[in-house]
């Protein structure tokens, strides 16, 4: 099979036309998305952040047909807004127009976390090095996106920064690489430490503060069909000024934490219970406390050195 065409083959003008018309079909790992939008911020965002993503073949199936547009009503002339739609369903309140691209990202995450039950969906990041995949579960603000961004720039493969899709039969991670959501100080840190980083437009006034999305590297996007084999679970705990510390986690606590971070544990029931209990029995888990990105990164290297087979 020939290499599929990528989004980068479309000029910004062509991209805008496709988004307004038949929709832009892109493949993100295992999922096909068809995106519609008449907003130029969305076209610009996709142009920057999705350039390495393969386009869907003309006769391919899209799992989700999503749209970001101005909602109808008189406000469109006073204070332009953006609304996310899956079909006709608008799961969120509209946001200011310039949040449109961030809204697309959040909306796609919502589609996956509320409609996709062929996998156990965990709120976690995942990255791989030499065939060893680590899960980074963590609440908003724990630093997981920033940490996997740093790993990605140091030769790791990014599988996801937000939604881990766990295959129920093989216990592997199905990659779902997407632009990484960076918040507040993390935006500055990533720009400073990794000059090749490509970021989308920075949005200043979201409910989460300042938000910008980081383009995943080409390798992570191109290898998105290779599943990740779980070698460990790492709970990141970033706190400015904290002392770097590595602490082993008990399997039972890890199990409960993973249940709490799953979106569809209740839907999958016993299958999900079996899967998570097998994972926590099989692989080690750690809490990583750190006050700077370098320290966090160093601790992950240390964990990986312990996990990797001796030469």
């Amino acid at each position: 099979m020939s290499t599929p065409l990528t989004v980068s083959t479309l000029s910004i003008g062509a991209l805008r036309r496709v988004l307004r018309g038949p929709g832009l079909g892109v493949r993100a790992g295992t999922l096909g998305l068809r995106v519609f939008s008449s907003l130029s911020a969305v076209a610009r965002g996709i142009h920057t952040l999705y350039s390495d993503y393969p386009l869907l073949e003309p006769d391919a199936f899209a799992d989700f047909r999503v749209r970001v547009d101005g909602p109808p009503g008189p406000r469109r002339w006073l204070r332009p807004q953006a609304q996310f739609y899956l079909g006709r369903t608008a799961p969120f309140q509209p946001l200011p127009r310039h949040h449109a691209m961030a809204m697309l990202e959040w909306g796609v995450n919502w589609c996956v976390s509320s409609h996709l039950h062929r996998y156990l969906v965990l709120h976690a990041a995942a990255a791989e090095r030499d065939g060893r995949t680590y899960l980074f579960p963590g609440a908003s603000g724990s630093g997981k996106s920033t940490l996997v961004a740093a790993l990605m720039f140091s030769g790791w493969r990014l599988l996801t920064d937000e939604l881990v899709l766990l295959d129920l039969d093989t216990e592997t991670v199905k990659p779902f690489p997407r632009p990484l959501g960076l918040k507040n100080a993390a935006i500055h840190v990533i720009r400073r430490d990794f000059p090749p980083a490509t970021l989308g437009e920075v949005v200043n006034d979201t409910s989460k503060g300042q938000v910008a999305h980081l383009r995943p590297n080409a390798r992570s996007v191109q290898q998105a069909d290779l599943p990740g084999h779980i070698a460990g679970v790492v709970f990141p705990h970033y706190r400015a000024g904290a002392r770097a510390e590595l602490e082993e986690a008990h399997p039972a606590d890890t199990f409960l934490a993973l249940v709490n971070q799953s979106f569809n544990y209740q839907v999958l029931g016993e299958c999900a219970f079996r899967l998570l209990s097998s994972v926590v029995r099989r692989v080690p888990a750690y809490h990583v406390h750190y006050g700077t990105l370098d320290e966090g990164h160093g601790l992950i290297r240390k964990i990986d050195a312990q996990t990797s087979p001796p030469l």
């Binding site: 062929r118 209740q266 839907v267 029931g269």
Partner: peptide, 11 residues
């Protein structure tokens, strides 16, 4: 997707 929706309905 059909199966996903079935699982959600059963839950």
């Amino acid at each position: 997707h059909l199966h996903s929706a079935w699982l959600a309905a059963e839950a």
